[in-house]
Design a protein around this nucleic acid. Structure first.
Length: 225
DNA sequence: GCCCAGGGGGCTC
DNA sequence: GAGCCCCATGGG
């Protein structure tokens, strides 16, 4: 059924295969909804390792709380998130996020997250510093509504097996997955987490271990069947 | 010392 | 809408 070109790749089979080799990744790392939102902004263009340091710093400074962050000077936030790259920009983004929730929901994040999926997504996209991937991460992992999150790893991995063109857009990738998978929060959660796990280990641009990549292995194995 | 990373904004044409 | 620069640390 499947081929090495990936044209008929069965996404559920691939999912089961990755889950079998990696196990459940237990995403998103974060104790509260607010922490998930903060992590989604901080992880822009940077690996999670650096985000974890910043989260710890924020926690120790008592700033991992919506109201505390709202009251805090931007410079205090900057100090905590230096490891996450572009820390001044990101402090500004965090401020924009908490300002939005305070202004429109009296600081009640849950109230915002309860809005219908598309409405919430559009609203998030209107906040400074929140683009498609960040908005979708918040919708899926904090609001727990079924939207499929794609990213640079998704593009890299699936273009390597010939499934996507390098020029594919975010929306096209998202549509690819959502038109083939049932809208299921735990499935979307784990699927994205597994892709990131594979990407981290096997698909860095600098040292691409393509041949060891479980997705590539899966496709070849399947082609030989 | 050099390169580049799980993104997004802002500008130009 | 595509193409390009900016942000600005830390790990390999």
């Amino acid at each position: 059924m499947n081929s090495s070109s990936g044209k008929h790749l069965n996404l559920m089979d691939l999912y089961e295969s990755m889950l079998k080799s990696f196990g459940s990744r237990g995403w998103w790392p974060g104790e509260t909804k607010f922490e998930i939102c903060v992590g989604a902004i901080l992880t822009q263009s940077v690996s999670w390792k650096n985000v974890a340091k910043a989260i710890t710093n924020l926690k120790n400074a008592g700033l991992l709380d919506l109201h505390a962050m709202y009251e805090s000077p931007q410079e205090e936030i900057e100090k905590c998130i230096v490891p996450t790259l572009y820390f001044r920009m990101k402090a500004r983004k965090l401020k924009a996020f908490v300002n939005h929730v305070v202004k429109n929901y009296n600081g009640n994040l849950q109230l915002m997250l309860e809005k219908p999926l598309q409405e919430l997504r559009e609203e998030l996209l209107g906040i400074y510093g929140i683009g498609q991937e960040t908005a979708d991460s918040i919708v899926l992992y904090a609001a727990e509504k079924p939207i499929f999150v794609v990213d640079a790893y998704t593009k890299r991995i699936f273009s390597r097996i010939g499934l996507f063109s390098e020029a594919i857009t975010y929306n096209q990738m998202q549509e690819y997955f959502m038109s083939r998978l049932k809208p299921d929060v735990p499935l979307y959660n784990e699927y994205h987490a597994l892709i990131v796990g594979v990407g981290n280990r096997f698909c860095s641009n600098k040292n691409p271990k393509c041949l060891e990549c479980p997705v590539v292995t899966f496709c070849k194995f399947d082609a030989n069947n």
